[in-house]
């Protein structure tokens, strides 16, 4: 009995220790920084109460970053979900070399995100980008546009990059879900004369509800935290048009060295994520029973 307990502690403790050191300790410390005027340039580090939060709520960038974070977390997720579901439905048909096509479809997710960011930055470049060439060829634009330098188009391009990158994740999860649905039920529905559309909405979607919840919430959380796809493409610009919490915290902490302020942004960001995480955990644990 003692031995079993020692084994249990000895096996779980190392993992918990690493998580405690790299996740819990810094989390607590960052929250405490948010109550100070800690600044690596001015050398200040003293208790400041809720001063950082009151400057934060009167900072227009805060509302811009909040809106950008929400839009960029949810919009691309919806687009990627639709496309990924379509890919999964097609790949679930009786086609030859399915695993080969599935492998191809996974490529946008497998190549490193920094590569994805530069690839799109290149394709949307004003002077050498292929997007301008194609759109001019189709007569949709008269002359080449600097897509990533215009406040109206940059968020759309960044959103497209997110969506393109995460379509394969939805495809993968939903295809696995489709393959686990019982074929009998689908066939019975067909025999009963259900149209494919009815079959989709009354059998497939309800059957995949749990996997849909988990994968959409997971993608929203990942988008909420994403830095790698935005930083190399726009640096949060032009004029904060693509500044999200992740970019803003990075800029405040590691370019302005305004640690207290960055921590205050982080605390607000964390509250949003905790709400999302709650829904995610409920979906994950609800199914265990």
């Amino acid at each position: 009995m003692m031995r079993e307990r020692a084994f249990l502690i000895g096996t779980i403790f190392p993992a918990l220790a690493v998580i405690g050191f790299v996740v819990l300790y810094p989390l607590v410390r960052s929250v405490s920084f948010s109550l100070t005027n800690y600044n690596l340039i001015f050398g200040t580090h003293s208790f400041d109460g809720l001063q950082q939060f009151s400057s934060l709520f009167s900072d227009p960038t805060f509302y811009t970053a909040l809106l950008n974070t929400l839009l960029l977390s949810i919009g691309p997720m919806l687009a990627a979900f639709v496309l990924g579901f379509a890919q999964a439905l097609v790949l679930n048909q009786a086609i030859r070399a399915r695993s080969f096509f599935r492998g191809l479809a996974l490529l946008p997710w497998v190549i490193p995100q920094v590569v994805v960011a530069y690839l799109f930055r290149f394709m949307f470049n004003q002077s050498v980008g292929v997007v301008n060439v194609v759109l001019k060829g189709l007569g949709l634009i008269a002359h080449s546009l600097p897509w990533l330098a215009l406040p109206h188009s940059a968020p759309w391009v960044v959103g497209l990059i997110y969506a393109w990158n995460e379509v394969p994740f939805f495809m993968l999860m939903l295809l696995a879900g489709l393959q686990s649905l019982s074929g009998d039920v689908l066939e019975a529905a067909l025999v009963d004369g259900a149209t494919p559309v009815k079959q989709f909405f009354y059998i497939i979607v309800p059957g995949l509800r749990r996997i849909i919840t988990i994968s959409t919430v997971l993608i929203v959380i990942w988008n909420f935290n994403n830095f790698t796809l935005i930083w190399p493409t726009t640096h949060g610009g032009p004029v904060n048009a693509t500044t999200t919490f992740a970019v803003w915290v990075y800029v405040q902490a590691f370019e302005n060295f305004n640690i207290g302020y960055a921590a205050a942004i982080g605390v607000i960001w964390l509250i949003f994520l905790l709400v999302l995480t709650f829904f995610y955990l409920r979906a994950v644990s609800g199914s265990e029973q």
């Binding site: 993992a15 918990l16 998580i19 790299v22 996740v23 819990l24 300790y25 810094p26 989390l27 410390r29 960052s30 920084f33 959380i221 909420f224 935290n225 830095f227 919490f245 992740a246 915290v249 990075y250 902490a253 590691f254 640690i259 960055a262 921590a263 982080g266 605390v267 960001w269 964390l270 994520l273 999302l276 995480t277 995610y280 955990l281 994950v284 644990s285 265990e288």
Partner: peptide, 26 residues
């Protein structure tokens, strides 16, 4: 044990820039 498992999963969702802030200083 169930709570601990869920807690472990939750740590994956914390904003990494916020953690990095303190770890950088450490």
């Amino acid at each position: 044990n169930q709570a601990l498992l869920l807690f472990i999963l939750a740590t994956q969702m914390f904003p990494s820039a916020v953690l990095l802030l303190s770890l950088y200083i450490l």
